[in-house]
Amino acid sequence: MTAVTLAPPPALRRAKRRSAALGLLAWLVGIVFVLPVLWMVLTSLHSESNAATNPPSLGAPLTLDAYREFFGATGGANPWPALINSLTASLISTLLVLLLALPAAYALSIRPVRKWTDVLFFFLSTKMMPVVAGLLPIYLFAKSAGLLDNVWLLIILYTSMNLPIAVWMMQSFLSDVPGSLIEAAQIDGARLPVILARVVAPIAGPGIAATALICFIFSWNELLFARVLTGVVAQTAPVFLTGFVTSQGLFLAKVCAASTVISLPVLVAGFAAQDKLVQGLSLGAVK
Score class of each variant (00 low, 15 high):
199 V>L: 04
169 M>H: 13
216 F>H: 05
195 I>K: 03
189 G>D: 09
179 G>H: 10
273 A>W: 05
232 V>E: 12
168 W>H: 02
195 I>F: 05
259 S>L: 12
253 A>R: 04
239 V>G: 02
271 F>K: 07
161 M>W: 14
220 W>S: 00
191 R>D: 15
139 Y>Q: 02
155 I>G: 01
215 C>Y: 12
226 A>F: 03
145 A>M: 14
184 A>L: 09
196 L>M: 11
185 A>R: 06
262 I>W: 10
260 T>R: 10
216 F>L: 14
273 A>M: 13
184 A>H: 07
244 F>P: 07
197 A>R: 14
213 L>E: 08
251 F>I: 12
158 Y>M: 05
147 L>F: 13
211 T>Y: 12
274 Q>Y: 06
215 C>I: 05
238 P>N: 05
154 L>P: 00
222 E>S: 02
139 Y>D: 01
255 V>C: 07
196 L>W: 02
263 S>H: 09
154 L>T: 02
231 G>W: 08
169 M>C: 12
180 S>R: 11
183 E>Y: 00
208 I>F: 10
163 L>E: 03
209 A>V: 15
212 A>F: 08
190 A>K: 08
241 L>Y: 11
230 T>H: 06
182 I>P: 05
139 Y>P: 03
190 A>R: 11
202 P>A: 10
208 I>K: 04
234 A>L: 01
254 K>Q: 15
250 L>P: 00
264 L>F: 13
140 L>T: 03
202 P>Y: 04
208 I>C: 07
149 D>G: 00
145 A>G: 03
269 A>K: 06
160 S>L: 15
266 V>D: 00
267 L>D: 03
160 S>R: 08
256 C>M: 15
249 G>T: 07
247 S>C: 00
166 A>K: 08
166 A>D: 08
232 V>G: 09
220 W>F: 02
246 T>P: 04
211 T>L: 10
166 A>W: 07
220 W>R: 00
222 E>L: 04
252 L>P: 01
183 E>V: 00
143 K>S: 14
230 T>K: 01
244 F>C: 01
258 A>N: 08
250 L>R: 12
272 A>C: 10
198 R>T: 13
252 L>D: 01
233 V>R: 15
222 E>A: 06
204 A>L: 08
162 N>K: 02
142 A>E: 07
217 I>C: 05
221 N>W: 04
272 A>H: 01
154 L>I: 10
149 D>K: 02
147 L>R: 09
159 T>I: 06
269 A>G: 13
239 V>T: 09
226 A>I: 05
200 V>K: 08
167 V>N: 12
204 A>I: 04
159 T>L: 15
185 A>T: 08
194 V>H: 13
163 L>V: 07
152 W>F: 13
194 V>I: 13
186 Q>K: 12
241 L>M: 12
249 G>I: 05
217 I>W: 05
252 L>Q: 11
172 S>N: 13
191 R>W: 12
155 I>V: 15
221 N>I: 06
201 A>W: 11
216 F>W: 11
232 V>Q: 14
168 W>D: 01
170 M>V: 10
139 Y>K: 02
255 V>P: 03
153 L>R: 03
241 L>V: 14
202 P>R: 06
176 D>A: 15
